[in-house]
């Protein structure tokens, strides 16, 4: 591989790609970067923190939705009653009777959305 031109004191090499690759590999392998020994432990602690954060975020959202629903629904009911001002029990019954199909459709839609939401969520988790 090496030819020495003694007259000029120069070294001339026929370096092919394989030779260069071997050099690069050896030099870079030797030059392995410093990975802290406790790096994986640190990352596990971070993962636990993320889990904890996720848990409280989900709990907060769940409770906020329940609390919001608990406040909102009676408010809507009160608003409707306030608007129609039923004078007696008969008035309430006739009011409910008047809107029974809308109420029924609303309840069915509510459950249908819940079901569709769970189904899509499950499907996404399976596909990911």
């Amino acid at each position: 591989m090496k030819k020495i031109n003694k007259e000029f004191g120069m070294h001339n090499f026929e370096l092919d790609d394989h030779a260069i690759d071997a050099m690069i590999q050896e030099a870079m392998t030797d030059d392995l970067l410093v990975i802290p020994e406790d790096f994986a432990d640190k990352m596990e602690i971070k993962a636990k923190q993320i889990n904890l954060y996720r848990f409280w975020k989900n709990e907060f959202l769940k409770h906020a939705a329940l609390f919001g629903g608990a406040i909102l629904m009676p408010l809507i009911a009160l608003g409707i009653f306030y608007y129609y001002e039923p004078k007696s029990l008969n008035g309430i019954v006739s009011f409910l009777d008047q809107f029974k199909w809308i109420l029924l459709a609303g309840i069915i839609m509510f459950f249908a959305i819940q079901l569709a939401d769970s189904w899509v969520g499950k499907k996404l988790r399976l596909n990911s």
Binding site: M1, H11, F13, L15, A19, I20, D21, M23, E26
Partner: peptide, 21 residues
């Protein structure tokens, strides 16, 4: 290009490499 650069530099500096080969 990386190979070529290294090659040029090694030849330029006349680094003995025969033991790698």
């Amino acid at each position: 290009r990386a190979r070529q650069l290294l090659k040029t530099q090694l030849l330029k500096h006349r680094v003995l490499v025969e033991e790698w080969i």
